[in-house]
Structure formats: C-alpha cells, structure tokens
C-alpha cells in the first residue's frame, strides 16, 4: 500500500535525479537549476560516490567518454579531490554505478552506460574493475546484449550475495546477474571473469525507461519511464523477477498487481505462483496535481 504525497521541491528547472540519504529520512534532488552543481571541464553526465569501504572516492563519467575517479585524501578537507584514475571509455557515457558489495573478495567495480543512439556501436554497458595488482581500472566485460541507449544503471545492494545484480534502464528494464567465475585463467591474471545472465527483461513501460533504483536490501527494483509510472519489481524465492506494482501519482488509475498483467520475460522459465503472493500494493488515494503551473 502506498500513500501518495506531493512535494514541492522548489526547483526552477527540471529535476534530474532524487535520492534518499542513508537513513531514509532526507532526500536530495538535483536539477539543472544548478542547486547541485558540478563544475568540471567537460560536460559531466553522472557522478557517484564510491562505497564507503573504499573511503572517500567518487567517479564521474562524461560525454567525451572518460571515466574519472577522484579521491579525497583528507576527510577533513572535502574541497580537495585529486584525480586518481582516468579511463577512456566509449564516447557519450551517460551513467555509472559503483558495485556496493562489502565483500573483500569483490574488487571495486564500476558499470558505465552509454546513451549514444546508434545501434552499430555495439554494447552500451561496460563493466570496469580495479585490479589491485596493476593498480589500474580495466574493462572486464562489455554487455553486448544491450545496444539501445542506456539512461541509467544501478548495482543492487549486495549484502550477502555471491553474484552481482545490475539493473539497466534502456528502452526496457533489464536485470542482469553477473557471477564472478573462478577459473584458473582469472586467478592467474587477477582479472575477474564474469558470467553474464539476463535475469529478467520488462517492457512494461512501453517507452523509454529513465531511472532504476533498488531498495536497501536489493530485493525490490523500482523503475520510472516516459509512461509516467513507477513500476516495482521483486524477486521471488525461486530467483525469478516479477512485476509487483505500478504507481502513478497524478490521480489517474493506479494499477496494483491484482489487475495488472505484466508481459514478463523471465529467463528463468520456471513456473511461478500468482504474483499476489509476493506483495500487495493498494492505492490509498489520488492527489490533485498542479501540473499546469509553469515555474515562472
């Protein structure tokens, strides 16, 4: 069940992203009205803090296809961030995500997505890993199955999984399982080999998907798309992903899973129980929305 509440963020321009803080009590928005402002040489398209296990570290990716990793050597002086690494990726990087795993068996990992529109340039999602031996970031995987522009991607919080789950917002919602393969080759070279499996692919939005976001335990994925819905997906106990809810705030019909039949493309192919067993969301009320009010 969800109760809808509208918040006036008082931004003067489009809001591009929103995030909760660690404790889930405050939220931050970033908008092109420059209230969260990053001034760098090229047009930086995404910036993310690294997992806290790695100290104060942040990564940016930019339209010119360079991933830059900065580190604040002194926690008391946050105005100083020194450039640690520069990795040349494909042009028009649009988004990146740190792998948040706490486990020391998982070396630092980044996923980068590109939003260039030509399908000819091949895979749009790249996985980079930091090798402790060479002290360098190396590309360990190109997800060739995704050739449409990627708008957002997010690693699932990994509290205890042996594999990584990556959600990708492209023309649809993809969920990939990345399993590190421990064969002799990877042990010798010190470079992780990943076994990439598409765990699910949801075309529910029927339009461009802009954002994907995980809950804190990595069991629920929320996505938003041009259809104006927030759709939620959940993994059931046999590792297959199901659409569990679609939320829309502007007073139009809110679909709950009972009447909502998703076109689920589950790769697992296992018989699944009725969705209603996994979760239940009911719309409590509609809200009126001042959608015609321009900002000025």
């Amino acid at each position: 069940m969800f109760e809808v509440q509208e918040i006036n963020a008082e931004h003067k321009d489009l809001i591009h992203d929103v995030a909760y803080d660690f404790y889930g009590q405050r939220m931050a928005t970033c908008s092109s009205d420059q209230y969260v402002k990053v001034c760098l040489m090229t047009s930086v398209t995404d910036v993310k803090f690294g997992p806290k296990t790695q100290g104060l570290i942040l990564a940016t990716c930019s339209a010119d296809g360079i991933i830059r990793i900065y580190e604040a050597p002194d926690v008391m002086n946050l105005s100083q961030w020194t450039l640690q690494h520069e990795v040349q990726c494909k042009p028009s990087c649009s988004c990146l995500s740190w792998n948040p795993s706490f486990s020391k068996i998982h070396p630092p990992m980044l996923a980068v997505g590109c939003d260039d529109t030509s399908a000819a340039t091949g895979g749009k999602v790249f996985i980079y890993e930091f090798s402790e031996n060479s002290r360098r970031w190396t590309k360990i995987e190109t997800i060739s199955s995704i050739t449409e522009p990627v708008h957002d991607l997010a690693f699932s919080p990994n509290l205890g999984r042996s594999y990584h789950v990556l959600a990708i917002a492209t023309k649809d919602v993809r969920i990939l399982n990345l399993t590190p393969v421990n064969d002799n080759n990877s042990i010798q070279s010190g470079i992780t080999k990943l076994d990439v499996q598409t765990a699910a692919q949801f075309e529910d939005h029927l339009s461009t998907v802009w954002r994907v976001c995980w809950n804190i335990t990595g069991t629920i994925l929320a996505s938003s798309g041009d259809d104006g819905y927030v759709r939620m997906f959940k993994m059931n106990y046999i590792n297959s992903w199901k659409s569990v809810a679609a939320l829309k705030g502007d007073g139009s019909k809110l679909l709950s899973n009972e009447n909502y039949q998703s076109s689920v493309g589950s790769s697992a192919g296992l018989p699944t129980p009725p969705i209603s067993q996994t979760a239940r969301y009911i719309k409590l009320g509609a809200i009126s929305q001042p959608r015609e009010v321009p900002w000025h």
Binding site: F2, H16, D17, Y20, S32, H151, N215, I216, G228, G249
Partner: peptide, 25 residues
Amino acid sequence: ANKANPQGVSINNKGDVIYTYRIST
C-alpha cells in the same frame, strides 16, 4: 536538455518511494 535525465526514483529503508518527473506542459 534532451540528454538530461528527466526522472528520478529512490527508495528508502522503509520502502517509501520518491519519484520526480517532468511535467508535460
């Protein structure tokens, strides 16, 4: 402006979902 992401979603530890989106004018 076309490249900038017009939407944002986040979930907090209680399961609340916050969602921002471009209002089509």
